[in-house]
């Protein structure tokens, strides 16, 4: 009863799990595409303020965007470390990546709190509703990624993440990079092109 009934590597030469995650990310494109489209459709349609011009703090968000982009770099380093069996590097970068993610989330919490103080809420106008729902769902995706990566980090700490496990790190990385790319689109369309 010990042999696997199917190889993990399938007919296309790809691992099942990796292909499954690619399919999932394709689906996520439609999810974020719909949310972004909603934001764009309602841009400038709010009958009353606050408007994006009055509220959005580009310098602040540029910093958090930079942090998130750097977390992608750390993700690359983490995968490389696991692949070459570098336990110390794996522990370091697998913590660094979600840590940078948490800094990004901290910025987002601060941003949301400031906006609410300045009068932008879910209910006040369409800009508030579409902004919070779009960036909120992105933040939720980052949070899931943080938990995922911290789980891998604890495995690494307990020496249970070996070179043979590089694939599960790679899959987490695919998700993490995807969430980053979505943020680049959101940052451009929501913050930079007002």
């Amino acid at each position: 009863m010990t042999t696997p009934h199917e190889a993990v590597i399938g007919s296309t030469g790809l691992d099942h799990r990796k292909m499954g995650v690619w399919a999932f990310l394709g689906s996520e494109c439609m999810f974020f595409g719909s949310l972004i489209a909603t934001y764009l459709v309602y841009k400038g349609r709010s009958p009353s303020g606050p408007t994006p011009h009055e509220i959005l703090n580009i310098p602040l968000t540029s910093i958090s965007t930079f942090v998130l982009l750097m977390s992608s770099l750390l993700m690359v380093l983490a995968l490389a470390a696991v692949q070459r069996g570098d336990a110390l590097g794996a522990r370091l970068w697998l913590f660094g990546t979600p840590f940078f993610g948490m800094i990004f989330l901290g910025f987002q919490v601060y941003e949301f709190a400031t906006f609410v103080r300045e009068g932008l809420t879910l209910q006040v106008n369409l800009f508030g509703a579409s902004f919070f729902v779009l960036t909120g769902f992105h933040g939720a995706h980052v949070s899931v990624g943080v938990v995922w990566l911290l789980t891998l980090w604890t495995l690494a700490l307990r020496n249970r993440l070996t070179r043979a496990d590089a694939l599960i790190v790679e899959i987490a990385g695919l998700y993490w990079h995807f969430v980053d790319i979505v943020w680049i689109v959101i940052f451009t369309l929501v913050y930079l092109i007002q």
Binding site: M1, A7, V8
Partner: peptide, 25 residues
């Protein structure tokens, strides 16, 4: 314990464990 995981749960590469299931087809 000798129990091998199914394909969706395999945490480690299991290639080559079975003569019929190895490699891309």
């Amino acid at each position: 314990g000798g129990l091998r995981p199914p394909s969706d749960a395999s945490p480690r590469g299991l290639r080559g464990q079975s003569p019929r299931s190895s490699g891309p087809r």
